[in-house]
Simulated assay, not measured.
Amino acid sequence: MNQPARLKPLFYPGRLCVTPAAHTALHSHGIPVISVVMQHVCGNWGDIPDDDRRQNDLSVTTGLRLLSSYRLPDATRIWVITEWDRSTTTILLPDEY
């Protein structure tokens, strides 16, 4: 999660949902949920392939689903998914998808 920060939000995340497992993982590392959300809405997509990064950049303007992936210090992955209509953003572990 150590990426240069863009400070301007690119989209509205809608309703925020966090699974209990994702909340526990973040809390165990002292990472506030809001910091993950801010990375996501500012276009810092985390640890995803370049093709997915380009797709997210395009999806911001075309209204498609957005996916970010962040690696915690213990190598646990956290996904952040915003639905195409921007109604909901969910923070979860990949195996909860």
Rank of each mutant, 00 (worst) to 15 (best):
R71P: 07
H40R: 05
H27A: 14
L64T: 05
R53T: 07
I81G: 01
R65N: 08
I78T: 01
G63A: 08
C42T: 15
Q55P: 00
V80F: 03
I48R: 10
L64A: 11
H40A: 01
T76Q: 13
L58W: 05
A75Q: 15
T61G: 14
S69H: 08
G43H: 00
P49D: 13
L66K: 00
D50Y: 07
D52R: 09
N44D: 14
G63P: 04
I48T: 06
I31K: 07
S68T: 08
H29R: 02
T61H: 15
T62F: 09
H27Y: 09
G43L: 02
R54I: 13
D57M: 07
V60H: 03
T82F: 06
S69Q: 14
L72Y: 01
S35D: 15
G46Q: 04
L64P: 01
W45K: 08
H29C: 03
D57S: 10
G63R: 05
L67Y: 10
I34E: 15
V37Y: 00
G30M: 08
Q39N: 11
V33P: 02
D47V: 12
S59M: 11
N44Q: 14
L72S: 09
M38G: 02
A75D: 15
G43P: 02
D74W: 08
L72T: 09
V80H: 00
R65Q: 11
L72M: 02
T82Y: 04
V37M: 12
D47R: 13
D47Q: 14
I81W: 00
R65Y: 04
T61E: 15
V37R: 06
Q39L: 11
L66H: 01
V41T: 06
L58G: 09
V36P: 00
